[in-house]
Design a protein around this nucleic acid. Structure first.
Length: 569
RNA sequence: GCGCCUGUAGCUCAGGGGAUAGAGCAGCGGACUUCUAAUCCGCGGGCCGGGGGUUCAAAUCCUCCCAGGCGCACCA
């Protein structure tokens, strides 16, 4: 907790001839609880003081021997470290009071001061089914959206739909050759997807189809009426299908600005690039050479005059800057596009935009089968809807078995099932690939969302059994906590604010997810060793305050992951 | 060929300069007349991919190698 650090910083700074701030930077959390709660390493002092670190630690401890602070009790040397031990009671009171006072705001800060942070996430390709692969950008992006909000930034969710490009040429060709209106109407995305797969199969044998597709995309770009009407039709039907998935997952966007949204700006981008003299013609195409920067060239316009993905991304980046004047602009897009973003940001820099450095690609690994990667084209894919459905069904079965009397089983099953899927994607470092495994998806034991939700539900259950819905604050009751399990839990709760900041700065919701597992684990230990309702009245009150704070931390944290914390399950 | 990412317990992964490298799963053994056993407690399990280097200190930083993944001009 910050207050404790500051207290120690002030005490220590004059003794080691450093600024309080420098001391704060050095303080670290020891690996073992036995080693205290905050450690000051003496290695860096060894040089200036010309003494071995353990001697320095020992001397400092002697100077502090008879002193203690409000939040710390004692300082002891251990090897090269000077370890500070918190004053458990005062510290508990301080932490619990803060959570009590801030409630749903605990962990939130106002680092952002309302600055805009557009976040590009989800961004599915229209007319392709929403596979499990797409859930990563969606849930990681949405969680970052919520986390930045909690830090006082004005997050702006942008769904950069893949609603433009050669694939529409392909779909138009496929539909003209083999399409059927009534099948399209019945199950649009699924049908378009089948056509898309069919196109790629046929194109293997008949490459002329690819040329035909390119031609149709070119027609689309030049506003050909027939092409545009196909495109509008496909787009509209796809969006309707996505809306139901987003609704179910509680995902929201400020803007559905797909690639097509930037069509009118493309000419301007090309002019801009030419004015800056960084582009040149090559084999009939317009390219920017990035060789001096060790990057492959960027193509802005094909020899047939059609634009590419990066042309639209340049327009989008400039549009976002002009519209939102962002503090940061985030792109939650798969790691396979790292090179694309390196090129994009480099071109922005070459155009003289100093804000290029405020754009960041937030990459993540792919979801793969044991046998290899998923492929939309080849039809090797698992639909997100199927995953969600099976996860919720599994949750339903477990609830039926464990808690048959539960009133609202359906909403609990929904929360647990969807939470499991989300958590699976959020809890590991995003840069790593994930191997898709039904057994793992459907396992709700151990380090899972259900583990956290279960702890939350247990707390709610205890509180429900007391007279009042939420325990009243009591300074004295909060001072009575002293069991190891209680103090460890308090210390863990105190870390929520820093974990939220760490998650935001590293763009890693997994940091928060892991932390919530720790909170739930410490709560479970407490739960098994410290009765709440059946303890002496003063102790009972203190413990109620403790579990209520735990409930709040779990709820706040899960909320930032986009996971619902049911009161019963 | 070049570039980026990853390699930690049987499996899935935390830890990303600092004290004795940690969880979950799987396995074995315990704990429900007591606040929800989706839980808890205990046991076994490791050349942190390999070599070299920087440092008082390396799983962590640098370098080379190996293995896997992903990219590298007319897809997104």
């Amino acid at each position: 907790m910050q207050k404790l650090k500051e207290e120690i910083g002030e005490i220590l700074a004059p003794l080691v001839e450093m600024d309080a701030e420098q001391v704060l930077d050095l303080l670290e959390i020891p690996p073992e609880p036995d080693y205290g709660d905050l450690a000051f390493p003496c290695f860096t002092l060894a040089r200036t003081m010309k003494k071995p670190p353990p001697v320095i630690a020992h001397n400092l401890a002697q100077q502090l021997a008879d002193r203690k602070g409000w939040l710390w009790d004692k300082a002891e040397p251990r090897g090269p470290y000077l370890n500070f031990y918190i004053a458990p009671k005062a510290y508990s009171q301080e932490v619990l009071k803060k959570v009590w006072a801030e409630k749903a705001e605990f962990g939130h800060t106002n680092l952002g001061h309302g600055a805009n942070v557009p976040i590009d996430y989800s961004s599915p390709n229209i007319a392709k089914p929403f596979g499990v692969g797409h859930i990563r950008s969606t849930v990681i992006g949405h969680s970052l959206y919520l986390i930045y909000r909690a830090l006082g930034y004005n997050s702006i969710g942008i769904n950069h739909l893949g609603d433009w490009g050669t694939q529409f040429g392909k779909l138009i060709v496929a539909f003209k050759h083999w399409g059927d209106q009534s099948e399209l109407k019945d199950n649009p995305v699924d049908y378009l997807y089948r056509l898309y797969v069919q196109f790629h199969q046929q194109a293997e044998e008949d490459p002329a189809l690819d040329d035909e597709a390119r031609l149709w995309f070119k027609k689309l770009e030049s506003g050909d009426e027939e092409a545009v009407s196909y495109w509008e039709h496909f787009r509209k039907l796809s969006l309707e299908t996505y809306a139901s998935i987003y609704g179910r997952l509680g995902i929201e966007f400020e803007y559905y600005h797909g690639e097509s949204h930037y069509n009118q700006m493309l000419e301007r981008v090309i002019e801009l690039v030419q004015e800056q003299g960084i582009a040149r013609e090559s084999e009939g195409a317009l390219i920017i050479d990035l060789e001096p920067y060790n990057l492959p060239p960027v193509m802005l316009r094909k020899k047939d005059g059609a634009t590419l993905y990066i042309t639209r991304d340049l327009a989008a980046a400039i549009y976002r800057k002009e519209t939102f004047d962002f503090a940061r602009s985030l792109y939650v897009v798969g790691a396979e596009q790292t090179l694309h973003f390196q090129q994009l940001f480099k071109v922005l820099e070459l155009l003289g935009f100093e804000w290029a450095s405020r754009c960041a690609h937030v990459p993540f690994g792919m979801i793969r089968f044991k046998e290899g990667r998923m492929s939309t084209r080849a039809g090797k894919i698992i639909l997100l809807e199927e995953v969600l459905e099976r996860a919720v069904e599994m949750a339903r079965e477990i609830i039926e078995e464990k808690n048959p009397d539960l009133k609202d089983k359906e909403s609990a099953a929904e929360a647990v099932g969807l939470g499991a899927v989300r958590f699976g994607d959020l809890s590991n470092d995003r840069v790593k690939n994930i191997e898709f495994d039904w057994e793992k998806v459907l396992d709700f034991s151990g380090e899972t969302a259900a583990y956290i939700q279960y702890a939350h539900a247990r707390i709610c259950s205890i509180i429900r059994k007391t007279e009042s819905e939420t325990p009243a604050w009591d300074d004295q009751a909060a001072l009575l906590l002293e069991m190891d399990e209680e103090i460890t839990l308090v210390k863990t709760l105190a870390r929520l604010p820093e974990k939220i900041i760490d998650s935001a700065e590293s763009y890693k919701p997994s940091i928060l997810a892991r932390y919530l597992i720790d909170v739930a684990r410490e709560f479970n230990r407490f739960y098994h060793n410290c009765p709440v309702l059946n303890s002496a009245p003063e102790i009972k009150h203190g413990r109620l305050l403790l579990i209520d704070a735990t409930r709040q931390v779990l709820a706040n944290g899960l909320g930032l992951l986009g996971i619902i914390a049911p009161e019963e399950m």
